[in-house]
Simulated assay, not measured.
Amino acid sequence: MLLTKAQSTVARLRAATASDHDAVDAGFGRYDLTDAADYRAFLVAHARALPAVEAWLRDIPGLPAFRDRGNLLADDLAALGEPMPKPMRFATAPSTAAGWGAMYVVEGSRLGGIMLSRSVPKGMPSAYLGAKHLPGEWRDLLAAIDAQAADEAWVEQAVVGAKAAFALYRSAPAV
Rank of each mutant, 00 (worst) to 15 (best):
2 L>C: 05
2 L>N: 12
2 L>E: 13
6 A>P: 01
6 A>I: 10
8 S>N: 08
9 T>L: 15
12 R>I: 15
14 R>A: 14
14 R>Y: 04
17 T>E: 07
17 T>Y: 02
19 S>I: 07
19 S>N: 10
22 D>L: 13
24 V>N: 02
28 F>R: 04
28 F>M: 12
30 R>A: 13
35 D>H: 11
38 D>W: 02
39 Y>R: 01
40 R>T: 13
40 R>S: 12
41 A>Q: 11
42 F>E: 00
42 F>N: 01
43 L>I: 14
45 A>Q: 00
45 A>E: 00
46 H>R: 11
47 A>Q: 01
50 L>P: 00
52 A>F: 07
52 A>Y: 02
53 V>G: 00
53 V>W: 00
54 E>S: 10
55 A>N: 14
55 A>M: 06
58 R>C: 13
59 D>L: 14
60 I>Q: 11
60 I>S: 03
63 L>H: 06
64 P>R: 05
65 A>F: 09
65 A>R: 07
69 R>M: 05
69 R>G: 07
70 G>P: 00
72 L>I: 04
75 D>F: 02
76 D>F: 02
80 L>N: 02
81 G>K: 08
84 M>C: 08
86 K>R: 14
88 M>H: 12
88 M>N: 10
90 F>M: 10
91 A>F: 11
92 T>A: 15
93 A>H: 09
96 T>Y: 06
96 T>G: 05
97 A>Q: 04
98 A>V: 03
99 G>S: 08
100 W>I: 06
101 G>K: 03
103 M>N: 08
103 M>Q: 12
104 Y>N: 06
104 Y>M: 04
105 V>Y: 01
106 V>A: 15
109 S>R: 02
111 L>R: 11
114 I>Y: 03
115 M>S: 12
115 M>Y: 10
116 L>C: 05
117 S>Q: 09
118 R>I: 06
121 P>T: 10
126 S>T: 14
126 S>D: 12
126 S>Y: 00
127 A>M: 15
127 A>E: 13
127 A>H: 14
128 Y>V: 05
129 L>T: 01
131 A>S: 11
133 H>C: 11
134 L>D: 05
136 G>I: 07
139 R>L: 08
140 D>A: 11
143 A>S: 04
145 I>F: 03
147 A>S: 15
150 A>R: 00
153 A>L: 14
153 A>S: 11
155 V>Y: 00
156 E>N: 13
157 Q>W: 03
158 A>E: 03
159 V>S: 02
160 V>C: 14
162 A>W: 07
163 K>I: 12
163 K>W: 12
164 A>I: 02
167 A>W: 14
170 R>F: 12
174 A>T: 09
175 V>S: 06
175 V>G: 13
